[in-house]
Design a protein around this nucleic acid. Structure first.
Length: 816
RNA sequence: GCGGAAGUGGCGGAAUUGGUAGACGCGCUGGACUUAGGAUCCAGUGGAGAAAUCCGUGGGGGUUCGAGUCCCCCCUUUCGCACCA
């Protein structure tokens, strides 16, 4: 293939050679520091952030690139609007994934990660991203995790980090504790091994203290609705009441339950406690002790999967009774594992008539079922064959003075009644649990705590950070539940910062999600050693203007980032409490209709495609294959269409700029189309509707070449700018060819003339009896009467009318 | 089970507030130029029909002059969450 840059006539141009010009411009950008942002002095900052990748050994995945290119286009577009765009990119390189891979290939992650990062960097640069590499970071760099440890200390200072002995999810395969969020359907999210219960002392963050704010702030954010919904569901707000049931015969004991249906309290015929409930031993009647103990042992041993997949309800009677505060009757207290200690109070009032689970349990153990809600006009005495869970329109029955009221009013009134008795209060409950950040692993930032016999858990003084993760060879976790670092006495034996007495470091490392929960704060301040993030620079750049990332992080990563930001905001360290003003999730790329996977061998390796088609064509194709927020189907054959488009662009500019062809005045229709295209592309990019933007440019290209006409300069020049966010290299090259000085990205986005867009003549669609029968080319501002006359004059339309039209509907400029 | 999203040609996908369904691209058909064509260019391309015309957006109802779009009932796919009281 020729790599000639000389313009050649359209008919004979086989296409342009991307490899030469892409390399040329990548070098040029580097040299001219085109993509380096002056973070300290930028007058009009715009922070275009994308989620940083985990630098896997396999290299950059096409899904990563899809996301990065999507962000890059947005960033480049903002730059063309005149903003100083900051587009950083780093690496999320700590964590189980890297560590497991290192174990698998028998290498040390500290050696492996730099190689992977170098490879990623090479691939990313080849893709022509507008990334400011002077502000890159890796979470594994001590200069970074020093500040991750600092963040931990800030939370500790605020009383938001605490240690507790807790039942935790233990993955026997990864040999580590998992956060609740990392357990998918009772199995480890990484290796699918069923999770077991273990008790370990762990560090937690009090994210649940922030539930209400994390929820209510969502309303103010410009995020995709699906992401907000996912967050709302995760936070899981439920409005209800906490009711107190006195224990019969033990006036000093009572059981608190949470319910969303206080209106059904008259139908509570028994109580159920979780097996782990602290009151279980005290309440168990000695006659029932052995049965209870047996049940407790069984459920403690049973792993989570088995417990959750129990098809039939199990349980055991404690022998004790509680007093229903509404009815005053004694009701039995049971224990069952269908009640979860983690949610609510770990105990429930069971209303078998109106809760499916309670109904099932009552059936198994023959407990009484009392009906307290009926549907409209229903007879309360009819036998229930299943729980009646109608909430909204139900009518209360068998509930004394509340009979006949609706569920909605009874919810309120019954709580008020119980509140007067001191037996209840309205409560809002959240599903969100505190965030366990301890990991009994090697590949993470050590938690900066020193345990002293005299002073307890002492934070490492900030001046002593970072607590450097030592290079150790035996980093493989074992079954002990203790971090690999605990095998290295020379590392963990340190003097207490308070008294100097020999003490022991915390040997757990922190969760990877902590690394990524604040990295966006660090980027602009990369290179500053004294603080995690510089106050003035942070004020200038944050919150992030645009954040793009995968849906798989729509819940946890975003929630944790919001939490950390809120905490820092409450401390007065930053002056905003939401980190990401705008967030959009990109879609997933599949391959020929199927998911990409290594086992299927259908993984798209970006390098091959970039080599064959060029980064510009590859980028543009990725954006063209489907809506950015939905992803799409990657089909090799379709790339040629995009390459053809770029070839035609190349050729069109070549002839338009050819000094041999005299410059022609621009064609009126083509110019109208051009301005329409400028408008369309400019509207589509902010909406991330990249596929239609590309289609619009192709359409314009077709108009430009229609009838073998020779395009003029004025017709092609703005198109080069429109294409530039998608295909930056060819745009720079053509910009230069057109005699422009400086980067095309330092020019301004072309503007359109609204007057030019509106044509004088329009096609008026004529429908008769709702069916389209033709169209009329008429003046834009034609009136109804003239339009009707014109339509009737056309035989092809008039023939569908049997007589005079009965009713005429006229939409000006559009339809008759 | 709960919650979200989506069903449009051979394929990927377009369609402001209801107003020419199928933009754009792939593929396919024919033609031009060619020693050649998996290059390039031109024309065509939802289905049926010789044509007029009719039928077409998962299925069935409905609202409307007019429905891919709005309402009701189904079916399918897919992604989250899942004994959350």
């Amino acid at each position: 293939m020729s790599n000639s840059v000389n313009p050649t006539p359209v008919e004979e141009t086989p296409g342009y050679d991307p490899s030469a010009i892409e390399q040329k411009w990548q070098e040029s950008w580097k040299e001219a520091k085109t993509n380096v942002t002056d973070v300290a002095n930028a007058p009009d900052p715009f922070y275009a952030l994308m989620m940083f990748p985990y630098p896997s050994a396999e290299g950059l995945h096409v899904g990563n690139l899809f996301a990065f290119v999507g962000n890059d286009i947005y960033g480049r577009f903002q730059r063309l609007q005149g903003h100083n765009v900051f587009e950083p990119l780093g690496y999320d390189a700590f964590g189980i994934h890297s560590e497991n891979y290192a174990l698998k290939v028998g290498k040390h992650p500290m050696d492996l990660i730099p190689q992977n990062i170098a490879n990623f960097r090479r691939q990313l640069e080849r893709a022509g991203l507008m990334v400011d590499w002077t502000h890159s970071l890796s979470t594994t760099d001590p200069d970074y995790y020093r500040w991750t440890q600092w963040v931990f200390l800030q939370l500790l200072k605020q009383g938001l980090a605490y240690k507790k002995q807790a039942a935790v999810n233990w993955c026997p395969s990864c040999k580590t504790v998992l956060a609740n969020e990392q357990v998918i359907g009772g199995a480890c999210e990484r290796c699918d091994t069923p999770v077991e219960q273990r008790f370990l002392s762990q560090w937690f963050f009090r994210i649940s203290d922030y539930s209400a704010r994390l929820l209510s702030n969502l309303d103010k954010l410009d995020w995709s609705e699906t992401t907000k919904t996912a967050q709302r569901n995760w936070i899981g707000r439920s409005e209800g009441a906490e009711l107190t049931f006195a224990v019969a015969g033990k006036s000093n004991e009572s059981i608190r339950v949470f319910t969303t249906r206080p209106d059904t309290v008259f139908g509570a015929t028994y109580l159920v406690m979780a097996p782990e409930h602290p009151l279980v031993p005290a309440l168990t009647n000695s006659l029932y002790k052995s049965a209870v103990d047996q049940y407790l042992t069984r459920s403690a041993k049973q792993d989570v999967v088995a417990r959750k997949s129990n098809t039939e309800k199990t349980g055991v009677f404690t022998g004790a009774h509680a007093i229903n505060p509404a009815t005053g009757k004694n009701i039995p207290i049971w224990i069952s594992d269908y009640v979860l200690m983690e949610y609510g109070t770990g105990a429930i009032m069971a209303v078998p008539g109106h809760d499916e689970r309670d109904f099932e349990f009552a059936q198994v153990f023959g407990l009484p079922i009392v009906r307290v809600v009926v549907g409209e006009g229903e007879d309360p005495s009819t036998q229930l064959t299943e729980a009646f869970t109608e909430n909204e329109r139900g009518i209360i029955v068998n509930s004394g003075e509340f009979d006949g009221t609706t569920v909605a009013t009874a919810k309120r009134d019954i709580v008020t009644m119980l509140e007067q008795k001191g037996a209840g209060k309205p409560v809002v409950n959240y599903r969100l649990h505190d965030w366990c950040i301890s990991r009994q692993r090697y590949w993470g930032p050590p938690i900066p705590i020193i345990y002293c016999d005299d002073h307890g858990a002492v934070p490492v003084p900030e001046k002593d950070l970072p607590v450097v993760l030592p290079y150790v060879d035996d980093f493989k976790p074992d079954d002990s539940g203790i971090s690999p670092l605990a095998r290295h006495e020379d590392w963990y034996r340190v003097p207490c910062p308070e008294c100097g007495k020999m003490s022991r470091r915390e040997t757990d490392v922190s969760d990877t999600f902590l690394d990524s929960a604040w990295y966006f704060l660090r980027y602009p301040s990369v290179g500053i050693d004294e603080v995690a993030f510089d106050a003035a620079i942070t004020k200038k750049w944050l919150p992030v203007d645009s954040y793009i990332g995968g849906n798989e992080h729509a819940v946890l990563h975003l929630l944790y980032s919001r939490f950390i930001t809120m905490v820092l905001s409450d401390m007065g360290i930053i002056d905003f409490e939401e980190p990401f003003t705008r967030f959009r999730a990109h879609g997933l790329i599949i391959r020929n209709g199927a998911k990409m996977s290594k086992s299927k061998g259908n993984v798209v390796i970006p390098d091959h495609y970039i080599e064959k088609w060029g980064a510009d064509a590859f980028r543009t194709y990725l954006m063209f294959l489907g809506p950015f927020e939905e992803g799409g189907d990657f089909r090799d054959a379709s790339i040629s269409g995009v390459k053809r488009f770029l070839d035609r662009l190349w050729a069109s500019v070549a002839v338009a700029c050819d000094s041999a062809t005299p410059d022609r005045p621009a064609d009126e229709d083509v110019m109208r189309k051009l301005h329409q295209t400028i408008q369309k592309v400019g509207d589509d990019i902010p909406k991330l509707s990249y596929n239609t933007a590309v289609a619009a440019m192709m359409e314009y290209m077709n108009a430009l070449r229609r009838g073998e006409r020779t395009p003029s300069r004025a017709e092609v020049e703005p198109l080069v700018q429109l294409v530039s966010p998608f295909a930056p290299h060819i745009a720079e090259e053509l910009w230069e060819k057109m005699g422009k000085t400086g980067s095309v990205f330092d020019a301004r986005w072309p503007s359109y003339d609204p007057g030019l867009i509106a044509a004088d003549k329009i096609d008026l669609v004529v429908q008769i009896n709702g069916k389209t029968r033709g169209k009329l080319s008429v003046a834009r501002d034609i009136g109804q009467d003239d339009a009707v006359v014109a339509a009737l004059a056309e035989d092809s339309m008039a023939k569908f009318l049997s007589g005079e039209p009965k009713k005429i509907i006229f939409v000006p400029g559009r339809l008759l």
